[in-house]
Design a protein around this nucleic acid. Structure first.
Lengths: 316, 316
DNA sequence: TCGTTTATTGAGTAATTGCCCATGAGCGAA
DNA sequence: TTCGCTCATGGGCAATTACTCAATAAACGA
């Protein structure tokens, strides 16, 4: 208990230091003097505030080039919504997209009328959810499309609904299932359970859905996270698979494949693109093919990506 | 026309640079390289983005609201220092303030150069002092503004300097006087004593002063602690009194009243607000008027309070 | 209780940033 | 064309910040 309150006190200090630094514009020296600590400690607190994501930065300006790309993408593929953020080749995979997606999630959650918001899985989505500020929206319901049990039986790390529950006060509905089950029959059985059934029904009514788009390959998330073995992956790719959303594997035209793996996917079906806004989050060269396939196959009807990817999609 | 689009293009670049700097976390050198400009130009763009408020920073922590309130109070009343702690309606009167005040006292006592720290009286101040850790600071002097003899002749409970002496190893100077004497003449006599004289002189040189702010009324500290009878209190309030600091009674404009009670107060005068940081500690609905009066009348020039009180002060 | 380990601190130092100023390009007026 | 003005530019430097490392303190386990 003492431990927790100490940590909390430290975060309090970090918040204070971060506020003084970023909002009040003081130097770390001044903060140190004001808080009665050394300059180094002040620096540490400021950087802690950033690391703990207490400090949220957002850019409030439509960059013309990005807007233009977004508009072209929307037209070319008939998408409902497109957001393009500046590319930054050097930085990690999720920078930019995560912030933009968090802002979009926030916009939905701030609506007055009750909505059902569905989330998939993936690193990008996790990063986006980590950017969310604390929001109270008891009217909304948040439902996970994918199971929260990893191959080794633990709770899956990238099951984002739990991270979301930390920040957002709303009713959350996780999916108490593994991501992949052993057979189509087992899936039927599990999906028949009352609790699972009602969660599946709710996900089908989602007003908006946020999903990551995964590429295939031995470096792709399905392999890295241990859902598939290398040889299974190779087999899939020989069968024409190029990407996945919530584990649902599709080919270069975005059609869900009729193969043994997809029969074992226990995730909810992606909500209808006619009634739900299904927003895909993805960027990067390795995902180009998967993103393109998801769009043309209408697995998604909205997209948040970066300039580089947007340009690729427009060229191809 | 060209002018407008040039400006827009510049803002666009600023937005891009600001994005790369704040969101992607790149250095200005890297931004310069990526955008094909000099580092100085990149710096200018980043600072333009800030100046044009394209970059919005926000702190996602409960402390943020408190800091914001503190900053507004400081500005509105020209205070030297304000600290606002989260309100917690459920808890007792001093929770939060006491911890914050203790931290502030500690900061002063940790200074290297010798200081004179003056303390008043009151439950809040007592609670704050009880929060102090053991500190050794032989260079500092701690002086009490108020007498340590209660109406019944015993040592007054809320004379905080003794509690302070338990925790803090420094030279302490209590005030060997009653809080109220029987007449102005007696006060003159007592204040003329060598020992009292030198303590009074020292208090006038205080670098920092911590005082509680008391409200009047038959439930207020002056009555509860037996310094004043109910009818004296009623008389005072009819005369416009709304609050007191160290027994010094002031009206709604924070002016010390010219009445028989104030003539009998044996406390040291509140140290000069020009040369001393005089920090008032108080919160709560019952004290609103007294706190406000103390601030506008410049009886204090710094404040530690809670959110609820801060909001009241900003509204009124 | 003692040794071991881990976390925290401040000093030192390298990296980064903010600011001033000289330079020169662009542009309008004489 | 030339002068004078404005303003963006980049060099240089001082201020500020980030990082490394060794010392110290605290926590932990035997």
């Amino acid at each position: 208990m003492a431990k927790r309150s100490e940590t909390a006190a430290r975060l309090d200090d970090a918040a204070r230091a971060g506020w003084l630094y970023y909002v009040a514009g003081r130097t770390q020296d001044e903060i140190a003097a004001a808080m009665g600590i050394s300059r180094q400690s002040a620096q540490r607190l400021v950087s802690l505030a950033v690391a703990e994501r207490l400090i949220k930065v957002r850019l409030d300006h439509p960059i013309a080039a990005c807007l233009e790309l977004a508009s072209q993408l929307r037209r070319k593929f008939g998408l409902k919504h497109v957001e393009v953020v500046p590319s930054d080749s050097g930085s990690s995979a999720t920078v930019g997209i995560a912030e933009a997606a968090a802002a979009e999630i926030e916009r939905w959650l701030k609506r007055a009328e009750p909505i059902v918001l569905a989330v998939g899985t993936g690193r990008t989505l996790k990063a986006a959810v980590d950017q969310l500020p604390a929001i109270e929206c008891p009217n909304h319901r948040i439902v996970s499309l994918t199971g929260n049990i990893a191959p080794d039986g633990s709770a899956a790390y990238y099951n984002v609904i739990f991270s979301m529950a930390d920040a957002v006060k709303a009713r959350h509905y996780p999916m108490p299932l593994p991501v992949l089950v052993t057979s189509a029959e087992e899936r039927e059985l599990l999906h028949g359970q009352q609790l699972v059934r009602s969660t599946l029904d709710m996900s089908a009514q989602a007003d908006v859905t946020f999903v990551g788009i995964g590429e295939l390959g031995i470096d792709g998330p399905l392999c890295v996270d241990g859902f598939l073995e290398k040889d299974e992956m190779m087999e899939l790719m020989r069968g024409g698979a190029v990407g996945e959303i919530c584990g649902w594997i599709f080919d270069v035209d975005g059609r869900l494949l009729d193969n043994p793996i997809n029969e074992r996917v226990a995730s909810a079906p992606i909500p209808s693109r006619d009634t739900s806004m299904v927003i895909g989050l993805a960027k990067g060269k390795r995902k180009f093919k998967a993103i393109r396939a998801a769009i043309v196959g209408q697995q998604i009807n909205a997209l948040i990506t970066d300039e580089e990817t947007a340009e690729f999609l427009l060229r191809n």
